[in-house]
Each structure stands twice: as C-alpha cells, then as structure tokens.
Design a protein around this nucleic acid. Structure first.
Ligand SMILES: [Mn+2]
Ligand SMILES: [Mn+2]
Ligand SMILES: [Zn+2]
Ligand SMILES: [Zn+2]
Lengths: 146, 146
DNA sequence: ACGCTAAATGATAACTGTTACTGATTATAA
DNA sequence: TTATAATCAGTAACAGTTATCATTTAGCGT
C-alpha cells in the first residue's frame, strides 16, 4: 500500500540519500489524503519507524517542499499543514476543528483571477491562495444541536 | 491627527475600560495605512507610551479583533499582520520583504466566488481569504539587477 | 472629591511550532 | 569492504504568542 509514486527515486535523482526515515515521511504524506501537520506526519511515521525524531520529520518535509513534491499551507494560526498535491488549488478550512479539504474549482475561478492579478500593478505575482473558512459539516451539526 | 474614528467610544460601550495603552493601540492601528505586525504596532505605540509592554499590545490587538474592529492576517510564516479595515478584501504579499498591500477587486471577484463556494457542500462558509504572493515592485527590481 | 473594586497593566515565565547544533549513524560510491 | 559525506537522534535555541501574578488604575457609587 501507499505507493509513493516513485518519489523516492525522484528524491534520489536530485542527489538526496534515501534513508528509512525519508522514505517513511514520503510514504506518510503520499498515503494520507488529507492535509496533515508535521506533528501528524510524525505520529503516522512513528508506526513504522518508532524512534524517528520530530526534527527529522520537519527536515524531510521541508526538503520535500524544496524539491517541489509537496506544498506547505501556512494559513491560519498554529501549525503548517502539508499537501502532497502540488498543483495550485483551493481549500476550505474548518475554524473549529482545523480540518482542510480540497475544492476543485480552479477552472471556474481562473479567468476572474487572471483579471484580478492585474490590480497588483508592478508586482510579479507567482502564486495565489484561495481559502474559504467556516464550519465543516460535522462541526456545524454539533453547533446546531447545542 | 490619527482620529480613531470613534473606536474608543465603541470599545467603551462594550464594557471595556479605556486606558491610555488601549487608546494608543487603537490610534496606532487606525493611523497606519499598511498592515503592521504586533511588533510594529509596539514600536509605534512606544513613541507616545514609552513604557507600554509587548503583552499589552498583544492583548489589545486581540481585543480589537474580538470586538470586530480589526482583522488578523496570519498568512505566511512569521508574525501575524493586523488590518484596521475589517471588510473582507484581497491582499498581495511580497515573499521577499513581507510587505502586504490591499487589492480592490472584490466587485469583480464576487460572482465567481459565490459560485465557487457552492463546491464546499455541507460547509457553512463564513469568510474567504484571497491572497496573491510574489515580489513587490521594489524587490523585483533588486532581483532584476543581480 | 474620595475610596472601592474589578479590569487592565508591566514584567516575566511558559508554551508552541520550528530550526540549529552536535556527535553518532549510515547510505552510497569507489 | 572501506571511506566519507549526508543524514540521523537528541536536544538546545529561537520566534511569536499567551498565561500568570503582583501592582496599578478606570470608572462607578457615594
Ligand atoms: Mn490540498
Ligand atoms: Mn488590508
Ligand atoms: Zn470542523
Ligand atoms: Zn518586497
């Protein structure tokens, strides 16, 4: 399970060494479909590499981002979340439980955003981040009943 | 100068006490047109209240946000930025110098976003954050010449 | 105007997320 | 196999922020 999509080979191609720990971080991020924090990745990885250290998880996540195989979502307070899908896409974040989901709406937004970018005169825009925040279905249900 | 738009009265109405320090934080945020961090607000306030403590600045900024008279922008790494303008609007952030500017493009984006929100099925969306990131004119100029 | 009291303050400790350091391991190439 | 540089575990340091607590003070009743 959790095929890492050949990421280990890619990391290796870029001159990196493929250690047990690095592979475990890759696999953890690739196998989970949501948007784990470094601490959550650490917990997942500890199941297969019990004595890995938090620093190593941080180091490998950072490396993964630098190599362009993951993106870091540092919206909101608290910890960054990591996303194995690197193409730019929109998110919804729950203000109650911090859950993050993907929204596949880029095609409908693209033209508006192109136009909007023009407002930043003189800027060299390289990325955009569109995020909706509110209550996820579970949390809004709980809110309703109390 | 730096009329605080009656904010001190409003704070007072909500049961808060209007101290020298609180008023100074209000004035600082209202007088500055950009998006200062708590540390930057602290520096501004120290000019009029030299012995204010950082904790008090944080406390009053938080209160201001809770009362709905400011918003906190915690995109990106490092410190949060504070914004005296509370109506939802878009920002561009420089990845090099962390400068943040307002983009007045909500009118053109509104219809697309309305449509986009529908993709978050079952969610109770309460806010959206649209941010462009890249190099500001100054930083992209420097980049060009080196 | 004067005192009372809860709210707010200054100073500082604690806390969280993250990075830096250091000496020990270990993946890889020769 | 051996050499060596990358990576590791462990831990200290760091930045931003919040909590604690003894002291001050704003705003109210008198
Ligand atoms: Mn995503
Ligand atoms: Mn703004
Ligand atoms: Zn939720
Ligand atoms: Zn800049």
């Amino acid at each position: 399970m959790a095929g890492n999509n050949g990421l280990s080979e890619k990391v290796h191609e870029r001159g990196g060494r493929m250690t047990r720990q690095c592979r475990a971080v890759l696999d953890a991020l690739a196998s989970v479909d949501m948007h784990p924090t470094a601490a959550e990745v650490y917990e997942i990885v500890r199941e297969t590499v019990p004595d890995i250290s938090q620093g190593t998880v941080y180091r490998n996540l950072r490396r993964l981002v630098e190599l362009g195989y993951a993106q870091e979502l540092d919206y909101g307070p608290g910890a960054s979340h990591f996303d194995a899908s690197v193409e730019s896409h929109c998110h919804a974040r729950c203000t109650n439980c911090s859950k993050i989901i993907d929204l596949d709406i880029d095609s409908s937004l693209a033209p508006c955003l192109k136009e909007a970018q023009a407002a930043a005169k003189g800027w060299q825009i390289s990325d955009q981040r569109i995020e909706f925040e509110g209550l996820c279905p579970e949390c809004s249900e709980v809110n309703k009943s109390e």
